[in-house]
Amino acid sequence: MIVEPSLSRRSALRATTAASGAACALALAGCAPAGNAGAKKGATPAEIPTGGTPHQVGKVSELAVGATAVGTANGVDVILFRPDETTILAYSDICTHAGCKVAPHNEDFKCPCHGSVFKGSDGTVVSGPAKEALPRFAAAIDGEWITVSM
C-alpha cells in the first residue's frame, strides 16, 4: 500500500500565492512603457535617419508656418511641423510611451491615450508619461511638395 502525502491548506496557500505573484509580475511587465523608459524627459533624438527615398506627403501650401499636420510616406503615417518658410520637420506618429497614435495639437503633438505632449519644433517630451522624444525622419520642401525620406 502506497500512502500519498496530503497537501495541507498552508502548503496550498503558499503555492497559490507564489503562482499568482509570478503571474502578476508577468502581467505588469506587459504594461511597461515601450522603448527606453530610462531616457531623460525631453531628450532630443540623437540622430535623424538620412537616405532612403523621398515620398510626397502633401503640398507646402497646405501647411502654414507654425502649423502641424499628418501625412503618409511610403505607407507609414507621420506627423509634420513647419517652423518657418523653408523648413519641414517630420516625426513618427507613434507615442513612445505605449504606442498610441499621436495627433497634431496646435504647435505640438498630443497622445490621446495617456496625455503625453511632444514639441513640434524638436519632438521632445513636454509632458509625460512618455519619456522619449518622437523618432524623426528626414523631411524637405521640394518645389510645391513636402517630402519625407524613408
Rank of each mutant, 00 (worst) to 15 (best):
G123R: 09
G58P: 00
S92D: 10
D93A: 13
I48F: 00
I2T: 15
A29R: 12
V76F: 02
T17P: 00
G66A: 08
F81M: 01
I48S: 06
N74F: 02
V117Y: 04
P5Q: 05
P135Q: 05
S8I: 04
A69P: 10
L63C: 05
L7M: 14
A32M: 14
I141A: 08
I94D: 00
W145V: 08
T96P: 00
Y91H: 04
G123T: 09
S149G: 12
H114F: 03
P104I: 12
W145D: 15
G52S: 03
L63V: 03
C113W: 05
A27W: 05
T68I: 03
G99Y: 08
L80T: 09
F81E: 10
H114L: 09
P112E: 07
A130L: 02
V65C: 04
R9Y: 08
I146T: 03
A22L: 14
T72Y: 01
L63Q: 04
P49S: 06
E107W: 02
A130C: 07
T147H: 07
N36S: 12
V78I: 12
S116T: 06
S6L: 14
K101A: 10
G30A: 12
G115I: 00
L7V: 12
S20R: 13
L63F: 02
W145Q: 12
G128H: 08
S149C: 09
S6K: 13
D142E: 13
C95I: 11
G128N: 07
D77S: 08
V117M: 04
P45F: 13
V70T: 15
T86Q: 11
T44D: 12
M1S: 14
P33Q: 01
E85Y: 03
C95T: 12
L89G: 00
L13W: 13
A23W: 11
L26H: 09
V125P: 00
A98H: 11
P112C: 01
L26I: 13
I94E: 11
A18F: 08
A90G: 03
E62T: 11
L7N: 07
W145F: 13
V65D: 14
L134D: 03
R136E: 14
V125E: 07
K131G: 11
P33D: 06
K40Y: 09
A140W: 10
G66Q: 06
G128M: 02
S20M: 14
F118C: 10
V126Y: 05
D84G: 03
S6W: 12
E132Q: 15
E144P: 05
G58R: 09
S116R: 05
G66E: 08
A133H: 05
S20L: 15
